[in-house]
């Protein structure tokens, strides 16, 4: 293999792929959160938005219903790339780490980075669950699958206490994963140019993690408490 080929396959490039795909997924989460907040605007608004997203977005550039599939394929591609690089990097880390220490003190490691990989794996399971509930309608606790009326599915599901609780845990994991991921993505892409940018990136990471947690849990909590029906 030439040096160029080795460099292209290096851990640094794998990290860059993880950074880019991760940031795409953060962007998606922000958009998803925005959509969920429309619960507060009532069923008509919410359903209109959801159906527009699934059928009419980018029409007439694309035929009806095409955008959502192209977008799903793109997202799946991002997840697969993110996962593949994560696995290869984990493999390299296990090899790089060698024999464990008898005693080890950690100063810089945050909770979010220590659990980053495990939370990432758990997230795959939780996301699959989410898709089985609201996208395919395979599993429908508290609601009936209705393509035309996603509002009723949202409200029905979050009236069930354990769906709400599981969702809280799910979002907590997302936010911890994102806390390290956000800072790490920008650093990997070269944005950490000095102590002040280190601080800024970390603060932004906390901000986005908190924003997503609040943004996703606000409408769900409102439904659970019966403020929105």
């Amino acid at each position: 293999m030439s040096v160029q080929q080795k460099a292209v396959r290096s851990t640094v490039v794998k990290k860059a792929i993880m950074a880019l795909t991760g940031l795409v997924l953060v962007g998606f989460l922000l958009m998803h959160m925005f959509g969920n907040l429309k619960v507060f605007a009532g069923p008509a608004e919410y359903n209109h938005y959801a159906l527009w997203l699934k059928q009419d977005l980018l029409y007439p550039i694309l035929p009806h219903g095409w955008f959502i599939w192209l977008f799903r394929i793109f997202l799946i591609l991002c997840v697969v790339l993110h996962l593949y690089c994560a696995l290869r990097l984990t493999q390299a880390s296990l090899r790089g780490r060698g024999t464990p220490y008898v005693r080890r003190k950690r100063k810089e490691q945050t909770f979010s980075v220590r659990w980053l990989r495990w939370f990432g794996l758990l997230l795959i399971a939780l996301i699959s669950f989410h898709i089985l509930m609201f996208t395919t309608g395979t599993f429908t606790p508290g609601f009936e699958y209705q393509f035309e009326d996603p509002y009723s599915m949202y409200v029905g599901a979050f009236q069930v206490w354990w769906v709400f609780a599981a969702y809280g845990v799910f979002m907590l994991l997302v936010c911890f994963h994102l806390r390290h991921g956000f800072w790490s993505a920008f650093t990997t892409l070269g944005a950490n140019v000095g102590p002040s940018s280190r601080l800024t990136l970390n603060l932004l990471a906390y901000f986005f993690a908190a924003l997503l947690f609040v943004g996703f849990l606000l409408p769900a909590t409102a439904v659970f408490l019966g403020w929105v029906i």
């Binding site: 080795k6 851990t11 390299a92 790089g96 800072w183 650093t187």
Partner: peptide
């Protein structure tokens, strides 16, 4: 970077 990965060091996680 190629040598770094080649001799068995792990990847950086910005810890």
């Amino acid at each position: 970077v190629a040598a770094h990965d080649g001799v068995g060091f792990g990847g950086c996680q910005n810890v």
